[in-house]
Design a binder for these strands. Structure first.
Lengths: 137, 137
DNA sequence: TGTATCCCTGTACCCAAGTACGGAGTCAAG
DNA sequence: CTTGACTCCGTACTTGGGTACAGGGATACA
């Protein structure tokens, strides 16, 4: 006999495996309203549609791009209107953010590199790392 | 009359102001063992020496360089031996870390920039941001 | 001497993004 | 029909880096 609903979509475990995420994480996304609860088939067990899984994988990809869950929620809201301008605003803000972070890290990189370089070159007696970082006593 | 001890060093509030940090933060550093408790003069009020304040300011500077409090504790441990090689190892590890972060952020930057650029150029109908980030339905 | 401003300890709370777990229900295979 | 793997819900805990009180001392200045 053909059980119509039960096999439509995947279980939470399969969805989790598909996007390489913890089952508890998916539940957490439900809790905070980031991912709508999928329909239940017969029993109490949820079935995740292809769309649900795609939404989940979007969340992970956006996270990798440095978006917070709040920002991701905002982006997912935009899906309803498909407002190109709003999405671009968010993307541009995030781009500015990332650019600033890169600049900050670059100056840290330069400083650390110069410390290491001078440390390698110099005598052990006056290690520039200690001089720069630990000006105690 | 000359009160010898009481005026040696500064109070927590002055120390906090000197390195632009919250009083509670200093107490927190004591709690986690990052900053040793300074001696008390007469009453129960702590007096922070110049060295204490320098140590505190080192913590903040190292934080700005991206070191975690754990790593900073490690660096402060090294002060005892002044082991140049160990310090260089830590600095080099952090440098590698920072370099990797920059690389990650750069690819994110490229991707976001290309999305924004294409979004500006294209027609509103097929916004690349939605296509790239929201491949739902 | 009053009062205003610090300081003390201890405890609880904050944020983001989860993770862990207990106790019960469900489902498929053997 | 039992076993084992999976799922449910709810609640509590985690990490890192702090903040915020409450309820008392201490100190400084007029």
């Amino acid at each position: 006999m053909w059980k119509e609903d039960v096999t439509v979509g995947v279980t939470i475990g399969q969805a989790a495996k598909a996007v390489d995420v913890n089952v508890e994480t998916i539940r957490y996304y439900h809790r905070i309203g980031l991912l709508p609860l999928p329909p239940r088939a017969h029993g109490s067990i949820r079935r995740y549609s292809i769309d649900s899984v795609r939404r989940l994988s979007f969340i992970r990809r956006a996270q990798q791009l440095g978006f917070s869950l709040d920002e991701i929620a905002e982006l997912l809201q935009l899906e309803k209107t498909r407002s190109c301008g709003s999405a671009r605003n968010i993307a541009e803000a995030k781009l500015a953010d990332v650019t600033r972070k890169i600049a900050d890290l670059s100056s840290i990189q330069n400083y650390l590199a110069s410390l290491v370089r001078r440390c390698k070159a110099g005598k052990t007696a006056d290690c520039p790392i200690f001089e720069a970082l630990l000006p105690l006593s």
